[in-house]
Amino acid sequence: MMESKVTAAYGVLATIHLIAFLADFVAPYPFAAQQRDLSFAPPTRIHWTDRSGQFHFRPFIYRSASAASNLAPIHFFVRGYSYKLAGLFTTDRHLFGVESPAVLFVLGSDGFGRDQFSRLAAGSRISLTAGWLAAAISLSLGAILGGLAGFYGGWLDDLVMRLGEISLALPWIYLLLAGRAGLPLDVPAVTSYFILITIVGVLGWARPARLVRGLALSVRERGYVTAARAFGASGSYLLRVHVLPDTISILVTQAALLVPQYILAEVTLSFLGLGIDEPSPSWGNMLAGLQHYNVLVSYWWMLLPALAPAIVSLCCFSIADSLLELRRPVPL
């Protein structure tokens, strides 16, 4: 039962990443396209039976509330705006859509009348990349510094651990403000955001470093390592053969926890005004609008984007759990 859950988690994660990769294909509208007369439109109701009770094999929407006969069937693999599929060839095919002037807002629209679903799909690309990028940076820095500290110990250990304490305490927000303010004007919003998230990733080295250090400490005290050392194994050999393999499993587990954490961190960054600039969408800036009382109260569908990071997190956590489960039987 547990296993099937983990398999499902892998499946869902893979699907979400695939959507991110094919965001333009999945999205029926360009993420920046404003339909100003449809500001804060609720999600479009999708029907199978029309008002006379007749069943339609193809789902449809009503073009307007008044004209009951005005059905707009939902088509698949329709033509829409043109884009580069996977960055390679230009096409204008989209997964689904309705014929304009009918509009299909699966998850409703925002204040400018932009399709939330298209923005969510496009945003997944930015948010997932940011999550992975920051996690990879934190983990690799943490692994190197923590591994060295734990394995060699002594002053190096002291230095790294104290540096960790310091870096947790510094007013890092100023570094982010400065990083953001110092960028040239022509840096695109997405790039400037990735630079920011890189800084966040670098700043996050301390906690993984602590973990890896603890592990390295315990590994180097184990019998077989002491034995190998007695046989004259070099430090780098020991690191490579005995410390690293154990570290990798802990790193993978950490990654499963850190990626969603960094995706969610973006919400906080957006809240502080350090998120990605409009009109580029991300999960964080789609949720940041909710801090406004009127949005939170009046438009429930604006909460729907919260599901995306939640689902990713849930999947990552259950994967992390299953990985921990694997590691557990190692007796000390």
Binding site: L264, V267, T268, L290, A306, A310, F317
Partner: peptide, 17 residues
């Protein structure tokens, strides 16, 4: 896990609401 997956900011806002 579900709780962890909701941004802190959102939890506070929803409670306030």
């Amino acid at each position: 896990s579900l709780l962890h997956a909701i941004p802190d900011v959102l939890i506070a806002l929803v409670l306030l609401l």
